[in-house]
């Protein structure tokens, strides 16, 4: 056996080990774009909230003000639509860019590793979604953003076993940010903009520079 052959052999082993257990067609660019969508969404949300100044006014317990109530309902409707739009745009972008990256490398996107990754992301995310729905039916919107951040962070932490390990730290930061937001829910919009906007852009850029070039 020649030395060069040996090096090739070891390189191929390392490559196979990595590719067999991790989904590495995630694109850093999709992280950056998801962050941009989130910041746009947060800006729109800020204007919506500003246009309805009475929506979040606290009414004394036992009283009921119809105007405030309907204001709140319409604001919440807007906010839900914004969140869904940001989520859908991010997912679509992520899927398209992953397909593109996989094609460039001559691999398929739908394989064992991507299935594992999706399953491990889906469990914490759907749990978080269920919690938010439950809070919603209890008419408690105080902890919506902190719940989103905590469960999204858990999903990323879980996902890091099946893709780039860097995602783990983003997950931890999101969890901590979510917990902090639970103590200061009045800063929810800012936390949302940081957690889903700024952090995605920073992390996406790091991943892009590290793996995509």
């Amino acid at each position: 056996m020649k030395e060069e052959e040996l090096h090739n052999e070891l390189a191929s082993i390392r490559n196979i080990m990595e590719r067999s257990s991790k989904f590495i067609s995630l694109s850093g660019l999709s992280g950056i774009l998801a962050g941009v969508y989130a910041l746009i969404g947060a800006t729109v949300a800020w204007f919506v909230i500003k246009d309805h100044p009475t929506a979040f006014v606290h009414t004394p317990p036992g009283t009921f003000d119809f105007e405030i109530f309907f204001n709140l309902i319409s604001v919440v409707e807007y906010l839900i639509m914004i969140a869904i739009a940001v989520l859908l745009a991010s997912i679509i972008t992520g899927v398209i860019l992953s397909i593109r990256k996989a094609k460039q490398k001559g691999e398929s996107v739908w394989n064992k590793t991507s299935r594992l990754l999706l399953l491990n992301v889906a469990v914490p995310l759907l749990t978080g979604f269920a919690v938010i729905i439950m809070l919603f039916f209890k008419s408690d919107l105080t902890y919506t953003v902190s719940t989103m951040l905590v469960f999204y962070g858990l999903a990323l932490f879980n996902a890091s076993n099946f893709t780039y390990t860097d995602v783990k730290y983003l997950g931890i930061i999101d969890i901590l940010l979510g917990l902090a937001t639970a103590f200061f829910p009045e800063y929810s919009l800012w936390a949302w903009a940081i957690g889903f906007g700024v952090l995605h852009i920073i992390y996406g850029s790091i991943m892009y520079l590290k793996y995509d070039r």
Binding site: I13, I16, M17, R19, S20, S21, S108, N111, K112
Partner: peptide
């Protein structure tokens, strides 16, 4: 063997595609 040391188990079709 290198696939099977890093994964608990692997199925035939996924192995075929990977290798």
């Amino acid at each position: 063997m290198s696939v099977l040391v890093v994964n608990d188990r692997y199925d035939f079709n996924s192995l075929k595609e990977l290798l």
